Computed example of a mutant assay.
Amino acid sequence: MTQFVLVAGAWLGSWAWRDVEPDLRAAGHGVHPLTLSGLGDKRGVPAGPGTHVQDIVDEVERLGLRDVVLVGHSYAGIPVGQAAERIGDRLARVVFVDSNVPADGESFVSGWPDGRAGVEAAIAANEGFWPPPTAADCADQGLTDEQIARFLGGSTPHPGATLTEPAVVAHPLGLLPATYVKCLLDWPEPSPEVAELLTSERWRLVTMDTGHWPMFSQPRELARILLDAAGTDG
């Protein structure tokens, strides 16, 4: 039995995976959607350097999980990629869903050369939190009005310290058994960093004809991709 640990990106919590979970459970696997500190129902829990990585490691160890597929969407690819190193032989595979990937000494905002100043300014103007997006930010991402309303209705401000802290990566990420899911409506090509990682024999690329939040726009297709990834030999 595979154990899926699902971690959504900025502003989101475990609730974001609601429509993905049933197909994973129906296939006989364990499903563990995780809300990171400071978000969703953990709003108000302090989140500083290393907190989100520890959240993921603690969940795996607390539940005694093995044969773990760690799934990180968007921002969450950064803590998930770091946690993957730390859970050792408990890890079966990592799935990065249209996500950032960690680089040693670099942060989430490091990957935003054109938008870094804007993100940092928004954090400074909102008491240390990155405010959730607006409906306009969700345009052209394959989402219905109902899906956008659900996404925005559940979103909470994201703790800024987790976006500016440098990642700690001890070994080349290309050594991890990994699948990268690229959502084509968001941007048709993987980032240069991801493209380089995809040259590794241990990495696989899968594309989805949807936008940046496939757990809302195409949850059953995303579930199928996760199930396929779990069965992929590293």
Results as ranks from 00 to 15, higher is better:
T179Y: 09
P166G: 01
P192W: 01
A170Q: 15
P190L: 00
P177T: 04
V181T: 13
R204E: 04
L184R: 12
P214A: 00
A139T: 15
Q147C: 03
E189R: 15
L198C: 12
F151M: 14
T199V: 12
W203H: 14
P166Q: 13
D140F: 08
P214E: 07
S191F: 00
T156H: 09
D209Q: 13
K182M: 03
L185N: 10
T207V: 00
T179A: 08
R202L: 01
A161V: 11
P172S: 02
E196N: 05
L198M: 03
R202T: 06
D186H: 15
L198P: 12
T207P: 15
S155K: 11
L152R: 14
P190Q: 09
A178S: 15
F151W: 07
E196Q: 13
W187K: 11
I148F: 10
T144K: 09
R202F: 04
C138P: 14
G154C: 07
Y180P: 08
A178C: 11
Q141Y: 10
P214H: 13
L143H: 05
A195D: 12
T199L: 06
G211W: 02
R202K: 13
G142Y: 06
H158G: 04
Q147F: 04
E165H: 10
P192F: 00
P159S: 04
G174Q: 14
E196C: 05
G160P: 10
T199S: 15
L185W: 13
D145I: 05
G211A: 06
P157Q: 08
T162D: 04
Y180C: 11
A167E: 11
E165Y: 09
P159Y: 00
T164A: 05
W203F: 10
G211V: 06
T144P: 05
T164N: 08
Y180V: 12
P159T: 03
P159N: 01
R150W: 06
S191K: 02
F151T: 00
W213Y: 14
Y180L: 07
P166W: 04
W213F: 14
L152D: 13
P177H: 03
G160D: 07
G211S: 05
A170P: 08
